Amino acid sequence: MRIAVDLNRCQGYAQCAFLAPDVFVMHGDEALLYDPDADEAQRAKVAQAAAACPVQAILVDAVDTGGAVATADASAEVVSGAR
């Protein structure tokens, strides 16, 4: 699983850090640190974090074994949005 956060869009609401603390961490009041290559075991928490983001700043991509990249919206297992 690969994660990208649009840090220009992120407003520091920290919803992602509350929902997936092993992947997203607030550094100070405004800076977000995250693991762009989070473990697949974190997928459910990352999906919840992405869906909870008020500004939809998180994009999550799933790479299947065939090398194709799949993306989806917040209603699916793979999510875009966050924090």
Rank of each mutant, 00 (worst) to 15 (best):
A57Y: 03
D73P: 01
A41P: 09
A74Q: 14
A57V: 13
R43V: 15
P36E: 06
M1S: 13
R43K: 14
G66K: 11
L59Q: 08
V60C: 06
E30Y: 11
A49N: 05
V63Q: 09
R9S: 10
Q42Y: 04
A74E: 10
D39T: 09
F18D: 06
A4Y: 10
G12C: 08
Q56H: 02
D61P: 03
A41I: 14
V79H: 08
A17S: 13
D29S: 12
F24K: 02
A38C: 10
V23A: 05
A74R: 15
A47Y: 00
N8A: 13
H27V: 14
D35Q: 11
D6E: 07
Q56M: 03
D39Q: 04
Q15D: 09
G28E: 07
V5F: 01
C10D: 03
C10I: 12
P54K: 02
V63A: 11
M26R: 07
D29T: 10
E77F: 07
A47N: 07
L32C: 08
A62M: 11
A4D: 09
S80Y: 08
V69E: 04
D39L: 04
E40V: 12
A57T: 12
K45L: 10
E30K: 15
D35W: 05
V79R: 05
L33M: 11
S80P: 07
A44N: 14
V78Y: 01
S80T: 13
L19R: 10
K45R: 13
D61V: 13
P54Y: 00
A52T: 07
A4K: 11
S75V: 09
S75R: 14
A31Y: 02
A70F: 03
D39W: 01
A31K: 09
G67N: 00
D73Y: 06
L19M: 06
I58D: 00
V5I: 09
D64F: 09
S80Q: 12
G67S: 01
A74V: 13
A47F: 01
M26E: 00
D35F: 06
M1Y: 08
L32K: 09
G81W: 00
V23G: 02
A82W: 04
G67K: 04
G12I: 08
